[in-house]
Amino acid sequence: MTVLTLALAGLAVLLLAAVHVVTPSLRFLDGSPRSVWLSAAGGVAVAYVFVHFLPELAGGEASVGRMAGDTFGGFSERHVYLIALTGLMAFYGLDRLAKVDRSRRAGIPVTDARGASVNVGTGAGVFWIHMGSFGLYNGLVGYLLLHREATGPASLAFFTVAMALHFVVTDYGLNEDHKAAYRRIGRWVLVVAVLAGFAVGAATAVSDAAIAALTAFLGGGVILNVLKDEVPSERQSRFWAFALGAAGYSALLLTL
């Protein structure tokens, strides 16, 4: 790892940490229909997964398969995609947990948990489950700033922009779910987590198979965390903004 690589990644992690600090204060993202900026940011993040992450997963399938075969005796030829599915399902479960808890506390149907104009957040238990899970998620992003399948300044820049915009989307959702608790404590937990992940990445390195597995899990999580806010009808999402963000960033990624 060169000094330049470490310095550029250090600037990237500071940008990602700053996103967590400022996003809850961005009032222009509020309201219904959904902000065009949130929809466009979601499109960028999803484009990165499908145009960049998934081809990387295909390339890492062999190494993950060897690792799984050595460890478990070989249980599938699609190990890396099962890991991506696990990431998607894990964050679907977390989102459902928050919706159910918030709805119960507000006394409204579960389907209206975010759509209703109520100033009720989740309970402390669900809040800390969410913070712990997204803390690991952020730590993974921080780690991958230094240990991705594709390396180089251009790859780092595309990854950082996609993850920064993705963090805007996830932070907005976490702020809706947890209210003051997220603004007071939660965002700082995520700041520490992404910085800690970067520090671990600077001090350690893992195998190519592990990098592919971590990338797969992150990819599944990104897809779910974006689409869970874009797809529900009560969000009144801006399809044109989502599509424009996805198409524009896809075009840029194809120049890599």
Rank of each mutant, 00 (worst) to 15 (best):
G59P: 15
W37K: 09
S207M: 04
L82G: 15
G42I: 02
V110L: 06
T5D: 15
S63K: 08
K228N: 12
A193M: 08
E77I: 09
V192I: 05
V222T: 07
V46I: 07
L252Y: 08
P55H: 02
A203W: 12
F53T: 15
A203R: 09
G69I: 07
G73A: 01
V200Q: 10
M163Q: 08
R102K: 00
R187D: 01
A47K: 09
G173F: 10
A106V: 11
V118Y: 01
W128R: 04
H130L: 14
Q236V: 09
A47C: 06
D95K: 08
V226K: 04
R235Y: 10
L146D: 05
V13E: 00
G135F: 01
F53A: 15
E149S: 15
A203M: 13
G186A: 02
M163C: 04
G197H: 00
G87K: 03
A154L: 15
A216F: 01
L256K: 10
L253K: 06
E176F: 03
G135A: 03
Y172L: 08
G31H: 03
V19W: 02
G31C: 01
T160G: 08
V231P: 08
V194D: 06
V118N: 00
A18E: 07
P24E: 00
A7L: 14
A213E: 06
G245R: 04
S32A: 14
A17F: 02
L195F: 02
H147W: 04
F242S: 12
I223E: 13
S250D: 00
H130A: 14
R148H: 14
A209D: 04
L256V: 10
I185Q: 12
G115D: 10
V110S: 11
V168I: 05
V231G: 05
F167P: 01
A246S: 07
H20S: 01
L26P: 09
G31Q: 02
P109I: 10
G132Q: 04
L54I: 15
G43R: 04
T86A: 11
L140N: 11
A106N: 06
G73W: 01
A210D: 14
S35F: 14
R34I: 12
A162M: 10
D112N: 10
L252E: 09
E56I: 11
R66Q: 11
